Amino acid sequence: MPKIAADGKNLTVLNLFSTDSAEKQDSLLAAMREIVDAAAYDGWRSSTVHSGQTKFGTANFIQWRSTEDLEARYAGEEFKHRTLPLFGEITTAIRLLQNEIVYAQQKSGDESTEIGPARDDYTAIDLYGVMEKGQDDLIDALGVSQEWLKDVPGYRSHTVLRGLRGRGIEGKWVVVYSQWDSKEAYDAFHDLPAEERTVERQKTDARVDALAVWRDSNTYRVVHTRSAAG
């Protein structure tokens, strides 16, 4: 199973696809599986495919050796003339996000987070738009300032990613990739009324509200993964 950590070893690409029906989501997943299973690109390290739960859509969490390797993939004829047109037919939005992992926290205390279909994680991916001058502060608010999450029932891990470059998105962003025991645990945390939240959480929420200029999120189940040999 791929592991993710704030060790600076990989360029992390998060490809987010939105669609408008269960049938199109199934088509997206099938196409993504085919691409992942055939992947042999120079510098490609792993891909992990996620199936949307709250909203129709998919996510692909991809690790690359470098930006140069990724851009070589984007410049290829297959990507330009087959992959993008195919996804364009069955999606309502495409975001191809290049990121660096800047913070990782696990309830277990492990140094890295495993992702893969062999686990039973209920996964949330939260995307926050931010002004460039506020990106570092938002990373702090969403990362180290949320150590209190370790005490939340059902919480497993969260990873904060700094947005670097992207297609289908404007400005700067921060991503939070979090894992939970179950949908019920995530919903209990997410839907808790503001007045019932801890003081620490209320302070964090206020910081995030002051910094984020827009938000988007979905929840997922991991359905497929593959890593490069060696």
Rank of each mutant, 00 (worst) to 15 (best):
G168K: 00
E89K: 15
A185H: 10
D69C: 14
K150I: 11
L211C: 03
V13D: 08
N60P: 07
E111F: 14
L29E: 08
P85F: 05
G43T: 07
L14I: 15
Y177N: 02
A104T: 15
H224P: 01
W180N: 00
G143C: 07
R119T: 12
L84C: 05
Q106H: 14
T91D: 01
V130D: 06
L211V: 03
A141C: 03
V49D: 00
N99Q: 08
I139Q: 00
G154R: 04
P193R: 12
R33Y: 07
D216K: 07
E100V: 11
S47P: 00
V130R: 05
F79V: 14
D69S: 13
A124E: 05
L86V: 08
H81M: 13
H190I: 05
E68S: 11
R221G: 09
A104C: 13
V176M: 08
V208G: 02
Y103W: 14
K24V: 02
I62H: 11
N10P: 04
F17V: 06
K172P: 04
E184R: 11
D37T: 13
D126W: 00
K80R: 15
R65T: 12
E114M: 13
V199H: 09
I4M: 03
Y186R: 06
Y41I: 12
E132G: 14
L97E: 04
D42H: 10
T58R: 04
Y186H: 14
S21L: 04
P117K: 01
S47N: 02
K183M: 13
L211G: 02
P153I: 01
R65F: 08
Q106K: 15
R156F: 01
V213S: 13
E23V: 10
R197S: 11
S66V: 04
D69K: 10
G168Y: 01
D126L: 06
Y103C: 07
G88Q: 02
A38E: 13
D151R: 09
L142Y: 03
K172T: 09
K55V: 07
E132F: 09
A206R: 09
F79Q: 12
S18E: 13
V144W: 08
N99T: 12
A185L: 06
E23W: 10
G230L: 12
I139A: 01
I62V: 15
L16I: 15
E78M: 12
V36Q: 09
G163V: 03
V36C: 15
L29M: 10
F56K: 02
A118R: 10
A185D: 11
A206D: 10
M131T: 09
D26E: 14
S112T: 15
R226P: 07
A72Q: 13
D26Q: 13
T123I: 15
V213T: 15
D37V: 06
D205V: 08
S27L: 08
K24M: 05
G116F: 01
A5I: 03
G116E: 02
